[in-house]
């Protein structure tokens, strides 16, 4: 977590474009929130019925840990849409990005309950200590 799900019309994104957008999403999310890159997942689908395009060519739904401000969420959404325009060769009007929130305590990743925003360093240290203890 975060998980960014991108749905597009068929044939909109090349493999290279998907990779570039995924790297942009990672950079944008980490830059805005300070979260580590290893948490950032991005997946791409074409005309997937479970994530409707709603008349758009490219649609992104990002689910991030709860606790970011509305300004941060808007900044992420705007920057992601710019990435879609840049790599999807489409207009901003053909894109949509929605950022939803999930409490960190609802998510288990890397074998541990996710840290609250801002508590990542302690989380990684505790995870490392537990893994070392398990190896002894």
């Amino acid at each position: 977590m975060p998980l960014y799900i991108c749905n597009t019309k068929k044939g909109t994104l090349s493999p290279e474009a998907k990779r570039n957008i995924a790297q942009d999403i990672t950079r944008i999310h980490c830059s805005v929130t300070g979260a580590p890159a290893i948490f950032v997942h991005a997946v791409f689908f074409e005309e997937a019925p479970f994530f409707p395009l709603e008349e758009k060519t490219l649609f992104v739904r990002g689910t991030i840990r709860k606790g970011r401000s509305a300004v941060q969420r808007e900044e992420i959404a705007d920057a992601v849409r710019q990435s879609l325009v840049s790599h999807g060769q489409t207009s901003i009007d053909e894109t949509q990005a929605v950022i939803l929130e999930t409490p960190a305590s609802w998510v288990l990743e890397g074998g541990e309950i996710m840290p609250e925003p801002g508590e990542e360093a302690e989380w990684f240290a505790a995870q490392q200590a537990r893994r070392q203890a398990a190896e002894v």
């Binding site: 493999p15 990779r19 890159a37 997942h41 991005a42 997946v43």
Partner: peptide, 22 residues
């Protein structure tokens, strides 16, 4: 259960090809 397959080359973690499931 809804089973959603990410097509090859379409899943990334930290901007690199992913082996993760959700």
């Amino acid at each position: 259960i809804k089973w959603v397959r990410v097509p090859p080359g379409s899943g990334f973690t930290a901007g690199e090809p992913s082996t993760s499931s959700v």
